[in-house]
Simulated scan of single mutants.
Amino acid sequence: MEYRTLGSTGTVVSTQCLGTMTFGNESSEEVSWAQLDRFVERGGNFVDTADVYSRGVSEEIIGRWLAARPGMRDRLVIATKGRFPMGEGPNDAGLTRTHLTRALDASLRRLGVESVDLYQAHAWDPLTPIEETLGFFDDAVRAGKIRYPGVSNFLGWQLQKASLLARFRGLAPVVTLQPQYNLLVRDIEFELVDVCRNEGIGILPWSPLAGGWLTGKYRRDQDPTGATRLGEDPGRGMEAYAARNAQERTWRVMDALREVAEGRGVPLSQVALAWVADRPAVTSVILGARTLEQLDDNLAAAELHLSDKETVRLDEASAPVVSVYPYGVPGVQQRSRTLPGSA
């Protein structure tokens, strides 16, 4: 396992983070404990959860596992999130002080800890001024309930606004962004990656295998079958599957991924994880596994680094589709400027 600092902080985390969205849902408590044990055994120290994962059950499973392993809490960097409904009341959702105060306290109880290392806004809340959310984060840091604030699923302007407001108001800074990022979904490169690099914010990619696509388990123009999420539950996500299946870019990426993987003699999934782990500003890649076998396969990519040639091959095949403006050539030309006489 390799390690990096968490954004611009000095806290050190493993370059792979154990995501626990499957805990209590697709993974039983026994399997979840086995995943946690294996992850730590392989040098992982960063665990990510959220209150809405299995409606609190994921946090409870982690809490029982921590309680059964004295001293483990001090070895881990634990992250959780709040924002989405955990009750039926009108104030049981959002990024307000009212909701986040309750949500954070409930998460701490379920985890059985006095503080979490990273507390993340799970998504933007259009009803709540970001100043209110940042003020809550700062108070929670001062109270010792969280060490760092982070955000997830923000747009470029939202992240930039949050980062600047925190800085100029002297509040605890946003240190991480958790977005979807993989070879098939690279849209954060249009603006969010630049914001993160400029502001010292670490990227924590979720769905690095694009919901299983980058493992190679799906075939062109064939309905999913077997032990896959879509194979076991064809009614869930088939519309999105069909849309991605119809895109020529999808299969261009898969061909390039298979080419690199075969050259390396490793599974496609490991190449996909290695690619995203070494993207600019990425701190740690969130692994989401249903089984211990899947986790083992993912962990094998922890120290895999692609050559420049392999990276370029994947970059070119997966280049995001851009509109004419503002991200296409005309838009880039609008913002370009060179010194007189320069080459």
Rank of each mutant, 00 (worst) to 15 (best):
D105M: 04
R335N: 06
G341W: 12
Q178L: 01
I61V: 14
T338R: 15
G212Y: 02
R290F: 04
P126E: 11
A256C: 01
A166E: 03
T49L: 06
A172Q: 05
G82C: 02
E189K: 09
M86C: 01
W213T: 04
D74G: 12
R264N: 04
S14H: 05
V175C: 06
F154W: 08
P234T: 08
G263V: 14
L287H: 07
G226V: 04
R290S: 11
Y241H: 15
F39E: 14
V195N: 07
G200V: 04
I286D: 14
L230H: 15
G135T: 14
F168R: 13
K81E: 00
D117E: 15
A172C: 09
L159K: 04
P70Q: 06
P179Q: 11
R313W: 04
A274W: 07
D278A: 13
S152K: 05
P173V: 09
D278C: 03
I61H: 11
A242S: 13
P234E: 03
F84M: 13
G43S: 09
P70T: 08
V47T: 08
A319H: 11
L104K: 01
R110W: 08
Q334C: 09
T101F: 03
D255M: 08
L155G: 12
T250S: 07
R167P: 00
A300W: 00
Q247R: 15
D233P: 00
A274I: 03
G231T: 13
W65Y: 12
P280H: 12
E310Y: 07
A68K: 07
S152D: 04
K161E: 14
E191W: 04
T228Y: 07
V52M: 13
G237T: 10
F190N: 07
T9E: 02
R110C: 04
Y218T: 09
P267Q: 07
V324E: 12
G200L: 03
I201W: 00
A302T: 13
W213D: 00
L76Y: 11
S58H: 02
V174C: 04
G44C: 07
L134Q: 01
T98N: 10
Q334P: 00
A227Y: 06
R102H: 11
L95F: 01
A300M: 00
E30H: 13
V174Y: 03
R236P: 01
M21L: 10
L287F: 06
L304H: 05
L214G: 06
R197M: 15
E59K: 01
A227M: 06
A274T: 04
W157L: 07
Y327V: 01
D187E: 15
Y325H: 14
W124M: 05
G156S: 14
Q333F: 10
D194Y: 07
T133Q: 07
E60S: 15
R75N: 05
T98H: 13
T101P: 00
R102K: 11
T101V: 10
R38W: 11
A140C: 05
R97F: 12
A240G: 10
P340S: 12
Q160H: 08
R252C: 07
L314V: 06
G63I: 01
H99Y: 15
R337M: 08
R142I: 04
